[in-house]
Design a protein around this nucleic acid. Sequence first.
DNA 1: TGATTTTTGAGGTGCGTACCTCAAATTGGT
DNA 2: ACCAATTTGAGGTACGCACCTCAAAAATCA
Lengths: 338, 338
Amino acid sequence: MRPTTKDLAIAAGVSLATVDRVLNDRTGVRKDTVDRVNQAIEKLGFIRNMVAANLARGRDYRFLFLLPRGGDQFLAEVMARINEANLAFAAEMMRAEVRHIHDSDPHQIANLLGGLDPETVDGVAIMAPEFPQVRDAMARLAERGIATVSFISGQVSSASDDFVGIDNRAAGATAGRLMGRFAPRQPGKILVIAETMHARDSLERRLGFDEVIHADYPHLTVLPSLETYGDAERSARIIRASFASHSGIVGVYVPGSEARVPLEIVTGLATGATIIAHERTPFTEAALQAGAIDALITQDPGHLVRSAMRILRARCDRREILASQEKIRIEIFIRENL
Amino acid sequence: MRPTTKDLAIAAGVSLATVDRVLNDRTGVRKDTVDRVNQAIEKLGFIRNMVAANLARGRDYRFLFLLPRGGDQFLAEVMARINEANLAFAAEMMRAEVRHIHDSDPHQIANLLGGLDPETVDGVAIMAPEFPQVRDAMARLAERGIATVSFISGQVSSASDDFVGIDNRAAGATAGRLMGRFAPRQPGKILVIAETMHARDSLERRLGFDEVIHADYPHLTVLPSLETYGDAERSARIIRASFASHSGIVGVYVPGSEARVPLEIVTGLATGATIIAHERTPFTEAALQAGAIDALITQDPGHLVRSAMRILRARCDRREILASQEKIRIEIFIRENL
DNA sequence: TGATTTTTGAGGTGCGTACCTCAAATTGGT
DNA sequence: ACCAATTTGAGGTACGCACCTCAAAAATCA
């Protein structure tokens, strides 16, 4: 049987009240008494039953996901996984809500964060680009006892918050390697179509992509990134123009998370180029299945969401996380392993 | 606030005792009273707090992993993840132990399963080849109230048990596609080195591999599988003999889970062939990093273990599982996304 | 040493549920 | 309408812990 607080009290030669004070970091315990209790914890291998603890506290965990307004299928996928996680984690007293933000308005985001009440919210997962104001607001949240994680994109992780997502440089390098190996072994050009290169994600992916291509596939030339600004018409125009003005485009790389618009245009042109994009969505999945694109580099939205929630909860409990479970993998999909 | 059993009792116009009888399928409740309670459950959206329930029961979940004796790094990896999961799931009152079996002795396995006591074991994850005796023993376990899952290899999943692992045909097809795209676009031969083709896994992987190569890369010829029987000396002999007698081997595929022995031999020969193997282990990871092999097709051992435990637990609670979380993905690793 | 502050113990209540007992109410059969 | 069988209610204890209060003990200071 697992040792209980009662066993602990006996082993440490103190009362239950003192054990409770030590376990919950309450004041009014001499340092050497704290040590005695901690030694007993070690000796007995006491594992605190968080389940009973939370039951007694009547505690539940309320998390908030701040996601950019707009977005397309990838974001929809993420939100679907949040709903799913709400069901799965209901038994463990965790709930998550989504709130939308304008991801180009750091002021609004910082305001929103500043207005969060620790009584109402236990943790926040934030998907937003890097802004100093947002960073500061996150640091202040931590001080006020609200756990934070950077979600998918954005902030460089710091001491006070974890990053849930993939290494985008490595993801870009992965795309680069596949492009190099899939494309013909003859001179050719590669088109890169991003939403905007102001987003850190696209930038890092492009960086990793270029590194690999330059190092190992010198016969391939990566063209300057096209920026669609999320506009379908503009996308169609500049992509068509690129194909018209460049001959010998053998590959297309779409580093952004929302690849539908550019892919629809490129596959519509039937150029025969090797096409690599990111994220698994109904559209990209169908395109891969149909052979319209060649590979997807993805991160699992369900894993992202659950991981963020588990990390937030661990932070609330001041517990360590199981690193191997929370490591988000860079996944590769081709038609065969969908 | 979430409704409790008390709220349920009031809403249904019955007592707590009756609610309890209904929730736990106890006898002695008239059918229309049961219906009244169920209607109240629907109406209030009552979610039973399993955490409190298990606390009250003093229940914990004891699971058993039956793994083949022998094995190499992949199995070691699986066992390491089981130990890790024991820590991670300790708070949720789940424990797993490992017991080793001779995976070629169905009689011993069936005996072991038959001797399990429902008082001591709540669920079993079995990694063993398909044998009728084992299937029967598993069915009988289910009757005796012990949950079972087939783990990684083996049994075709049935009504009474789930399969935790990947679709091996698809995994082989994935390997085939990568081989086709990575290998030179000129005629060449591909060597397949298996431990034994009696194992369903290797067989299915080879099947999927061949399908893709035949369909889309007719310039490549897949040679008959070499069988190492797990013997290092035999492996060295037959692999060397193959390279000596065949010219133009441009690819090597190792479909088994324990690829170290064959890979050490093949990479030692420095043939320049494209090499694809399965499973991520210290050895295969280092080989991929060093560029000695080209790709790995894997399943995540940590995910496998945790998924098996979550499924077993759900079965014990007569709960549904979150399918998307339990789906084991066929992962592709190249140097860049390790 | 006495007064003051700090630390500790003892004991209680409650979280949401399981499971037990015993008596009361309801039902069915005749 | 009566007896027996079945169904239901009321109430208790327990699970492991949090959190509260009050008093007693110990340490600290003057």
